[in-house]
Amino acid sequence: MTFEDLKPKVTYIISNSVLSRDEKLLKICELLNNSIEYYNWVGFYFANLETKTLHLGPYVGAETDHKIIPYGKGICGQVAVSNENFVVPDVAAQDNYIACSFTVKSEIVVPLFVNGENIGQIDIDSHVINPFTTADERFLEFVNQEIAKLY
């Protein structure tokens, strides 16, 4: 399924008035995980602006011990500070990478902005080296723009 095919499905999930916000986020995780072959872990982290930490939200994939991540630590923590997308073609080449599983080969993290403030991010791990393209970035930015409507 192409990113263009997925966009209306994401919009439909966001507009579902029966589901809670966390249920919608989980459905989006499931949709992306099931629709894009190289998306092997899909989840959200949300910022606690006072403590400068990220807290794990809904996700699909292997269990993770990384439920709270300090700003600046790992890929997610760096995105919390930089406010910019971070594509890691090969996690083994990253100095500030928090290993979740030996099966993870690459990662993409895209910040989630609400009213210009970075409140969290979508985080995707892949078991493939270097699968993420600019098209993934633009699609995940779209996903986060839709999710921002929930806040």
Rank of each mutant, 00 (worst) to 15 (best):
S126N: 06
I36A: 04
S126I: 08
N16E: 14
I14Q: 01
I75N: 13
D65P: 06
L6W: 01
T51W: 00
L31T: 12
D22F: 00
L49N: 13
I122N: 08
V87S: 06
D65Y: 02
P89D: 15
E146H: 02
N48H: 02
N40G: 06
F44Y: 15
E23D: 12
I28V: 14
S101F: 05
A92E: 14
E84G: 00
S15D: 15
C100N: 11
A99D: 09
I75P: 07
A135V: 02
V18Y: 11
M1H: 08
V114F: 10
A93Y: 03
N115G: 09
A47L: 09
V91G: 05
Y39R: 02
E84D: 13
I75A: 14
I122G: 08
N144W: 01
K24D: 12
S17P: 06
D90P: 06
V87L: 14
N118F: 02
I129A: 04
E37Q: 10
L19R: 07
P58F: 01
I14F: 01
I36Q: 00
I124F: 03
V109L: 04
E63F: 10
A92N: 15
L31V: 11
S15P: 00
W41T: 03
V60M: 12
D65E: 14
K27M: 12
T64F: 00
F113S: 03
A92D: 15
V42C: 11
N33H: 15
S82I: 01
V18D: 14
F113P: 04
V87E: 05
A47H: 11
D136H: 11
N118W: 03
I147G: 12
A92V: 06
C76A: 15
D136Q: 01
V88K: 05
K73V: 15
F86M: 15
V91C: 07
E50N: 13
I98Y: 03
K149D: 01
L140I: 08
D22K: 05
M1C: 07
I98M: 11
V109K: 04
E117T: 15
H127I: 07
G57V: 09
E50S: 13
N118S: 10
S101C: 06
F113M: 09
E146Y: 00
F46K: 09
L140H: 06
G120N: 09
E107A: 08
Y39P: 01
Q94R: 07
L26D: 12
A62G: 11
I119A: 03
A92F: 09
V104A: 13
F3W: 03
N115P: 01
L54V: 09
S106N: 08
G74S: 08
E137F: 05
L26V: 05
E117G: 00
E50D: 15
N16Y: 07
I124C: 05
F102N: 12
L31S: 11
F44T: 11
T2M: 02
T53M: 10
